[in-house]
């Protein structure tokens, strides 16, 4: 696939992530409405066993996409890109390990971590939109953060993709663990405490 095709693919994934997050927000806000509450409960129950794994998958795809852009497409990461990588890469690693081990206890910390990464993405989006926020009116030939290496569907840039991934991962990490998994985690903790 060409860089253009890959960018469009990542952009479509971002749109899909946005739809899931918006649906989750609507489900949360509209839970007083019986129909929405029932649908939300059904969807959450179906997703629950896989939520941690899906969050790991989202962070891993975002990590792979980031590496694709820098190592295959040849887009040099700017400073803010590196900061977002600093949030996304460890998130992917921790979630993959947690999903493999079935350790749901990481989800609160990982959720906060993802939201912090998302905050950096928001700042990067603002810098893209308002280059003067970089504190300079001059383009440094050495790659300012305001360059939009990718712009798909008219508005989806690389930090937008990162923000979408952070938000989707955080949303999935909001899902409570399966009941038996909670008990397993509690049992692990109790075992540790009695040693």
């Amino acid at each position: 696939m060409t860089v253009r095709a890959m960018s469009l693919f990542f952009a479509l994934l971002a749109v899909g992530a946005n739809l899931v997050v918006v649906a989750a927000v609507i489900g949360r806000l509209g839970r007083a409405i019986p129909a929405i509450a029932a649908l939300r409960a059904t969807v959450v129950d179906e997703v629950r066993p896989y939520a941690l794994g899906l969050a790991a998958f989202v962070a891993s795809v975002a990590t792979a996409g980031s590496l694709y852009y820098s190592e295959v497409a040849g887009f040099p990461p700017c400073t803010l890109c590196w900061v977002q990588r600093g949030f996304m890469y460890p998130l992917a690693l921790v979630l993959v390990v947690a999903a493999a081990r079935g350790t749901w206890r990481v989800r609160t910390g990982a959720r906060v971590w993802a939201l912090l990464g998302g905050a950096v993405s928001v700042w990067h989006l603002l810098v893209e939109r308002f280059p003067a926020l970089e504190g300079s009116a001059v383009c440094d030939p050495a790659n300012p953060c305001s360059i939009r290496w990718v712009q798909e569907l008219g508005f989806i840039t690389i930090p937008y993709m990162a923000l979408s991934a952070f938000l989707l991962a955080a949303t999935l990490l909001w899902v409570d663990p399966p009941h038996d998994q909670s008990r397993a985690d509690d049992a692990r903790t109790e075992t540790r405490e009695t040693r």
Binding site: L13, D45, G53, H179
Partner: peptide, 27 residues
Amino acid sequence: GARRGRSRVPVVGIVIAAVVALAVVAL
């Protein structure tokens, strides 16, 4: 679903199918 800890819907299959479909659309 919560009691059983497993889903009745093939969530993983749906996710994989959606990702593949988006890749095909992009291409």
